[in-house]
Design a protein around this nucleic acid. Structure first.
Lengths: 138, 138
DNA sequence: CAGTATCCTTGCGGATACTG
DNA sequence: CAGTATCCGCAAGGATACTG
């Protein structure tokens, strides 16, 4: 993919995102950036079908509230399927949908790239913050 | 890339993101999900070097405040370079950095996929909302 | 177990007015 | 022109306690 190709394809993609009348696509993209979404998608992708508590155990730091909220959002976006077995005590399992698996696949190159460029982000931020401090201390 | 390969690579990527002590990588990902970030990155990618007002003109609906804020954030993340010519009246130009161009490239497959699956999202949301309405109206 | 309910803080997004 | 300053509403994220 050469430089022109990049621009042509990004043009097409951004046109489509701009013409996004109801904001649905941007919303999905935003949700993907939320605190726990990527972790849940990944966890379910790796492990298959999991119960609520089991997901919580595998993800460090998530509270019950945020896990429930994230799962509801992912379910609403069609990325996760909720299986309620209607038992007492309750047993509810979650798994990635087809489309959710698709997202997982699409996210991987981006994640990999972000990880590879982490040092660059850190350096950029440091020099930026230094500059700002120097200015405000004048 | 077969199914196992997907899982192996997502495992590696998510391990790296989980070990993200300072949250820097997640932060960059979150910023990419913000309202105007993608548009600015795209606009600069297509047009090259642009002035503040020129970016505003090319992006429908953005306010001065949000544009400035978005540019500051992108600059802090190292995705955008700010050229202040120190003239009166002020002339400031922005352009994508190398690393910013890299993000643009990485985002394209994801955007394309989101656009292609927009119908899926819409359907998922509709049936979800219908179910919720049916439950709360009981 | 799988959630709600409540309360809180933070930051996004936006409108409007002002300035070097 | 390229921003600040000030206001607002809203949703994300989190802590804690309670429930069928």
């Amino acid at each position: 993919m050469d430089n022109e190709d990049v621009l042509r394809r990004s043009q097409a993609a951004c046109d489509a995102l701009s013409a996004d009348d109801d904001g649905l696509k941007r919303e999905v993209l935003t949700h993907a950036g939320n605190r726990w979404s990527l972790g849940v998608v990944h966890t379910l992708g790796v492990a298959g079908k999991l119960r609520h508590a089991e997901i919580g155990r595998r993800m460090h730091g998530v509270t019950q509230r945020m896990l429930t909220r994230t799962l509801r959002q992912l379910e609403r976006d069609g990325l996760v399927v909720r299986h309620d077995h209607h038992e007492v005590p309750p047993r509810v399992e979650y798994e990635l949908s087809e489309i959710g698996m698709g997202l997982l696949v699409q996210m991987i190159p981006l994640w990999t790239w972000v990880i590879e460029n982490a040092e660059g982000f850190r350096n950029a931020r440091q020099s930026y913050d230094l500059q700002v401090n120097a200015l405000t201390e004048e």
